[in-house]
Design a protein around this nucleic acid. Structure first.
Lengths: 134, 134
DNA sequence: GTAGAAGTTAACATCGATGTCAGGTTCAAG
DNA sequence: CTTGAACCTGACATCGATGTTAACTTCTAC
């Protein structure tokens, strides 16, 4: 498929897809005229990339991870160096901290909402605890 | 207290404290010579500000929230407009989405770590579920 | 072959809190 | 008074994914 379709199917802008390629996260065959031609698997890969970006990882880190990912390009995997595993573990801890911070922030925000709305607290339903449990 | 001490006690850089002031988030009396002089309460306020920044709120939004916060400046509160409450609720939802995304990202990362380390999964301890419960 | 949709590269802009540096002033202790 | 620490303002840099635009080429359907 070409870049327009991939963009549509993944919800990622063409601009970003080209950027991913530039960062080495995504490869594309080219037509005779130079247009990018993606295999079906590219959809999954872009989704994976998005998930990692959503985690706040840098493209450089994602670049190192990708060859180790299951199904990254259909072929099995490469094995990560202990150094990379260590780095990923650090990232995991960072994400944990981020989650913790956000939970705290949400509490603060809830308190602000209650206070700001000026309702006596007992008059309010407790704020919906969505996404509360992991 | 002066800015150096406030910075030290809150862990926020002097640069940021001046920025907060510029954004109207923080006020300071001035000495005859123009040095900022903060009341004791400023510490709490800066902590509050930090929490809201950590939630990804913009300084503009924080600016609108602050007068409604309990203990924001010792005096009781102002009441938020319904519009503001609506905005805050939207922010809350954004944070929820962010938390959900991060939880998902963490899962992905865990999978990568398992795969990348190349261990047969049954040989590994399951990754520590820290900050798992809200 | 021709028109219009879709693709290409390259360059520049953005957002926003924070770092950093420069050149100057004030404060506090000797 | 003097010295050095602390503070002041203002300006510029940063980071990184993404938006946007321009000028051009290729593809596809007629």
């Amino acid at each position: 498929m070409r870049i327009g379709e991939l963009a549509r199917r993944t919800g990622v802008s063409e601009r970003s897809l080209r950027y991913y390629e530039q960062q080495g996260l995504l490869v594309a065959r080219r037509t005779a005229g130079g247009h990018r031609e993606y295999p079906e698997m590219a959809v999954d890969r872009v989704v994976h990339i998005q998930e990692l970006f959503a985690a706040g990882l840098h493209s450089r880190t994602i670049f190192k991870i990708l060859p180790c990912m299951r199904d990254s390009d259909g072929s099995p995997s490469e094995i990560a160096t202990p150094l990379l595993v260590e780095e990923l573990t650090a990232e995991r801890e960072r994400i944990d901290r981020m989650i913790t911070d956000l939970l705290r922030s949400r509490e603060v925000l809830d308190e602000v909402i209650v206070t700001a709305s000026g309702q006596p607290p007992e008059a309010l339903q407790p704020p919906q605890p969505s996404a509360e449990a992991a």
